[in-house]
Design a protein around this nucleic acid. Sequence first.
DNA 1: TTGTTTGCAAACTGTTTGCAATCAA
DNA 2: TTGATTGCAAACAGTTTGCAAACAA
Lengths: 149, 149
Amino acid sequence: MIDAETLKRVLDRAGHRVTAPRLRVIEALAGAADHFSSEDLRLAVPGVGRATIFRTLNLLLELDIICQIVIDDGTFAYRVSAEGHHHHLICRDCAEVTDFHVEELEDLLQRLQLQNTFQMESHRLEVYGRCARCVKKSRKQGPEARPKR
Amino acid sequence: MIDAETLKRVLDRAGHRVTAPRLRVIEALAGAADHFSSEDLRLAVPGVGRATIFRTLNLLLELDIICQIVIDDGTFAYRVSAEGHHHHLICRDCAEVTDFHVEELEDLLQRLQLQNTFQMESHRLEVYGRCARCVKKSRKQGPEARPKR
DNA sequence: TTGTTTGCAAACTGTTTGCAATCAA
DNA sequence: TTGATTGCAAACAGTTTGCAAACAA
């Protein structure tokens, strides 16, 4: 997790100013859930305007401090960047997001690139399903208790 | 590509009515580009209201006649469903979408499921990069001509 | 001091909803 | 006839933008 000092260094190196809202956002990130929406963040930093939240999110995105996840419904969630490239396991019930990394996938796509006439630049793999906790929960309550999606 | 007759059968089987707007949308699909936005479709079917476009898209989605792609910017694109499960190669320059299928990926995820305590239900893999045509084009014009993203 | 950043409100985009009118069966 | 479907307009959510005021360097 990035701290205020690191942020100051990173901002400075990239030619951005160290401002109060930015520091407050970083502070909020420390207490943030695993993943969060722009609105979650806004509520966590009262007094900071919506526009600033978005501008800060985009800045942090640009600085690779956070990353963006496309939720199944097309909206974004954000989370503090994990090390290196990774993918997401997204629980349909509780919306928990877990990172995972499959080395073989990168190899696979590398091979794919040779077969297709397509210059790969990046990729996004999102796996949807249910986390262990929710599976257990619905077993207890019976399968009917499970939401449609 | 689905035709009017097939649609009628599918609609009927699912307990939906065969209506003029629905038939016009299917007709438009035949002439639609590889992928299209809700707005593209709306323009292709003049006189049909926005709401109906969305309701029809959702219906066709439900009937597996079209599928939804999450574009990098979080918006949706639609395209006529390809056979079976597949993934997408999305060109950052011309936005062309190509299907591909990697058998090994399914195996890979199958194995993954055992390692992680996560019940997989579905997944989405989108590969971003540049298609052969755009690569060739930018080589001709020099790499500077290439858009930022 | 000076250029950056902020907060606010307004604009925008894509999508959904309420409802009376229309239509398919 | 009757419930499903439509078109319209209004509502909505999430995000971006214009601009004067506030701020960091």
